[in-house]
Design a protein around this nucleic acid. Structure first.
Lengths: 342, 342
DNA sequence: AAGCGCTAAGTTACCCGTAACGTAGAGCGT
DNA sequence: ACGCTCTACGTTACGGGTAACTTAGCGCTT
């Protein structure tokens, strides 16, 4: 089925028109059901379309009309993290319902990757962009402003977005978790996470967490696994390192649930009881966490909903409907049973 | 930052050329570093590019050159299933390394959705397509053949693909699991899955599974959760329904690990011991399964690798390098400890 | 001084649709 | 029979780049 790569072998509208014995314009009108043609002509054109297997070239359409495309660029840090996979699913389901397509960019939490991706995706004249995170490089911001297309920043709640934003306040969610652990009576508390840009939602959570814990008379010992992904195994080894370097840790808060699971496995493998000997708290409330006999103490966010709302904001803006530009979808604490209950 | 939507406010190459006092063609040559211009001219053009914030319009390039774009359409059934999220991550990482972008299509396991998505994405002149599954609607196949672009079918091993294919033999993987359970001494075996198209990898697994079990003197009782996703809760309720309608079930094989976790939770909640009272087997070997005290009996597939190889095949074909068109990446059984060990 | 080759440009045509405008012929009223 | 309106088309220009071709000007040879 491979054809010569040099010249297009695609069937064009002109060919359809020629075969049908009409002008390009008439064929175009028929295909767009614009009216201004007889039933006989319509049937003839459609017959040739079928016979030749004509597929419209949307590139040319966009090009002709000075329109933008139906693409929406979507940047997501990673998909190994279930949370972001769900956000993307929510976005794409909603976008595709309205005839848009997601152009994916995995930006790995780095502003440089994001900038490069933005440059590339903008060159395809997307209808809009959905970006994870509120921080962007200066050049990226410049390009985004010049692009003149709708932009939704998701994940971090952002009261002064470039254009629109939907997310949660990560600082607050960290703060609430910190306060909860203090209320549970913990004071010597560990944190295990990965080390990325400071311009990162997880960093905000940690900041909020530390503020609450230290404000409550506690102490946070941090263990950051450098250059690693926020998954199960780093949680395991990060916990090992934390407990080896620090004694007296009563409870550990993890960057996310996957890491918390890893940490919990380390603790139980070492004969520690959760929560009797050590408390474990995650973030994100993965659906799978309900499997465990003990429900993981965590923070719940509706990831799918987050994605859907982001896409809906995009679609509304593209349809020139009024849009509330900033939305906080909130979170709630799952007490679980992996921390000691007062 | 919203601008008038009617006329493009984008900076075009002509504007850059005019500002720089050269022709479009010269500016084009400078930007493509094609040579044939003086250093003075180059510097002048680049300065204006910077000043005006010019971003090339790749749509026009593709259009002009009868080339295909750098887009690669990627159809994935769903992202809620971690397995597919990982496949997509593998694909996109590899594609983006070589300057390509993924255009996502969530086709929800239905051929109709896939067909519609193929039609749309082909109209954007993609460089190639990566499709999950070996079954496509007749019209989809027709379009794919006419498109004249590289196509990689993934997930199902497929010895006579449309173009290229990488995956595993799902029938065999089901068969191996069936034989293993028979070897473990089970004969009254349940299956819990969802009901989709028969044209589905999970169906092949079930077929292979039944063949092995029935060939080994066992009996398979199926419980298909209609119109539901293959996740945790359907696994839970499917198990409830199966055990209510059938007695004497000794072991249950699930469509995937997530459903198996749901089933296991149901069983333990009802006071059954795993594997003493009932055996549980999943498929896919989710990383998270290592969290459980008992490793889930499952079937391991390297999802990330699958995606990477698919993308690599695409890239090689696009670079006119020779490509082995069919690849089986295999699987291996994780005995685990959720089935009775002989 | 004519001829040649080279560099650094410019010019033209084209890709595939669509907007805007032009027109032939039918139908109709007077 | 004339003008008018309306339908059903056709014609032209255009969008942002690029391939292919052309050209101006310079240095060098003979």
């Amino acid at each position: 089925m491979r054809e010569k790569p040099n010249k297009t072998n695609k069937v064009s509208l002109s060919e359809v028109a020629r075969e049908a014995g009409v002008s390009k314009m008439t064929a175009s009108r028929v295909l767009r059901e614009e009216g201004g043609y007889s039933e006989k002509t319509r049937a003839l054109v459609m017959q040739k379309v079928d016979e030749l297997g004509y597929l419209p070239n949307r590139l040319a359409t966009v090009f002709a009309g000075d329109q933008s495309s139906t693409f929406v660029g979507v940047s997501i840090p990673e998909l190994g993290n279930e949370v972001f996979a769900q956000v993307l699913e929510g976005i794409d389901r909603q976008l595709s319902t309205f005839g848009h397509q997601s152009v994916l960019g995995l930006t790995q939490h780095t502003l440089k990757d994001e900038e490069d991706w933005i440059r590339t995706v903008l060159s395809w004249q997307p209808a809009g962009l959905i970006l994870t995170g509120r921080y962007h490089s200066p050049r990226a911001i410049e390009m985004l402003k010049n692009a003149g297309i709708p932009i939704v920043e998701i994940w971090d709640y952002n009261s002064s977005p470039l254009d629109m934003s939907v997310g949660i306040n990560h600082f607050d969610s960290g703060f609430d978790m910190g306060r909860y652990l203090i209320e549970c009576g913990y004071t010597r508390i560990g944190y295990v996470g990965t080390s990325h840009d400071a311009a990162n939602a997880a960093s905000s959570r940690l900041d909020g967490f530390c503020k609450a814990v230290e404000g409550g008379g506690g102490l946070v010992q941090k263990q950051l696994c450098l250059h690693d992904t926020a998954t199960f195994y780093p949680g395991f080894y990060g916990t090992e390192q934390l407990l080896a370097s620090q004694s007296g840790i009563e409870c550990i808060f993890y960057q996310n649930d996957a890491m918390a699971f890893g940490g919990m496995q380390y603790c139980t493998a070492k004969g520690m009881q959760v929560p009797e000997d050590i408390g474990i708290a995650g973030w994100g409330d993965l659906p799978i966490s309900a499997v465990l006999k003990r429900r993981l103490t965590s923070m719940h966010v509706s990831h799918l909903k987050l994605g859907k709302i982001a896409a809906q904001m995009m679609i509304s803006r593209l349809s020139d409907e009024p849009v509330e530009p900033v939305k906080d979808i909130g979170f709630h604490l799952i007490p679980g049973s992996t921390v000691r209950n007062l």
